[in-house]
């Protein structure tokens, strides 16, 4: 496994075009946005300087921002698209380059799938971590340049409450990303196409989210309101439920949708999300192990 991880790490980092445009786009984008929208205009335009000075920002929110943006529908789904494309390149790319035939005889197919998955997700998480630090660093620099407040002071932060919030948000984003990545990997191996993997993964996210509407319609037609509760087995619901339990202390009823009574306990949602992730990875490994490599 270590050999496969090391090879995959070098390969994906070596694909500078995919890595730059699909992964580094977040930290680089955050840096450009911070410089071009926040800092440079403030330095050049006096009115904006005053506006910036009057702003109050908190690093506790800034550190969480990028992780929050990446969850939920539709914003999260569309922001995840570059990462989904990166996963698709990692998996379907081997078909397009005709290189599976070189690496498969030397390593187990399951190990190769896992290595690709672990390395891609690690690179994506590192990019997101860098993005959150750049956002917070930019705001800190802005506060120094424009003499604005940037709180709260470290001594005043209730870390006992902040850190669980911070890490639980990262965990929810991580779970959401890994499930999208597992769907993308499965479709990429099945379709052998980067484009198909990206479009179908986004399609699956849309269908999954829209399934609540379908369930509402069907339950109305059949006059069985409880049918809506099938929604609680979806990854979307359970991710939202985990977030809601951790941040608000109560389960999610998806904004009070009529008929949705089966609010899951936190542990059940964690189990369901884990089940989805393991199931998708297993399906990917099984599919790949049965596949003929003709390219």
């Amino acid at each position: 496994m270590r050999n496969a991880l090391s090879a995959e790490w070098r390969k994906l980092l070596g694909h500078t075009r995919a890595f730059s445009f699909l992964v580094l786009i977040f930290p680089v984008g955050a840096l450009i946005i911070t410089l071009m929208i926040d800092i440079l205009p403030g330095l050049l335009i006096p009115d904006l300087r005053e506006f910036n000075a009057a702003r109050t920002r908190t690093w506790t929110d800034d550190l969480l921002m990028v992780w929050t943006l990446l969850t939920g529908f539709p914003g999260g789904t569309f922001l995840q698209m570059p990462f989904i494309a990166f996963i698709a390149v990692a998996f379907a790319g081997e078909f397009q380059w005709g290189t599976w035939k070189n690496i498969l005889p030397g390593q187990s197919r399951t190990v190769l799938v896992l290595a690709k998955f672990i390395v891609s997700i690690t690179l994506i998480l590192l990019a997101l971590l860098a993005t959150s630090l750049i956002v917070a660093g930019g705001s800190w620099l802005s506060s120094i340049l424009f003499d604005s407040s940037y709180g709260p002071p470290v001594a005043e932060v209730d870390f006992a409450s902040y850190l669980p919030d911070y890490f639980s948000q990262i965990l929810v984003t991580f779970a959401s990303l890994t499930i999208s990545a597992a769907i993308a990997a499965l479709i990429a191996l099945y379709s052998r196409s980067v484009m198909a993997a990206v479009l179908l993964t986004v399609g699956v996210s849309i269908v999954e989210f829209a399934s609540i509407l379908l369930l509402l319609v069907v339950s109305g037609i059949l006059n069985r309101p409880n049918l809506v509760n099938v929604f609680v087995v979806t990854p979307s619901y359970n991710l939202e439920n985990i977030r809601s339990w951790i941040l608000d202390g109560v389960g999610s009823n998806v904004g009070g949708i009529p008929g949705l009574t089966a609010v899951q306990p936190l542990s059940t949602s964690i189990l369901i999300v884990t089940g989805w992730l393991v199931g998708l990875l297993l399906a990917t490994a099984v599919l790949f192990n049965r596949q003929d490599i003709n390219s």
Partner: peptide
């Protein structure tokens, strides 16, 4: 060891890096 149906490599890597990736995969 095999050369199957025409050599195919990662176009975005150098020849040496391609050999490194293949060797690392095989340990």
């Amino acid at each position: 060891g095999a050369l199957v149906e025409g050599a195919a490599f990662y176009d975005f890597l150098t020849g040496r890096k391609n050999l490194e990736v293949l060797a690392r995969t095989r340990g």
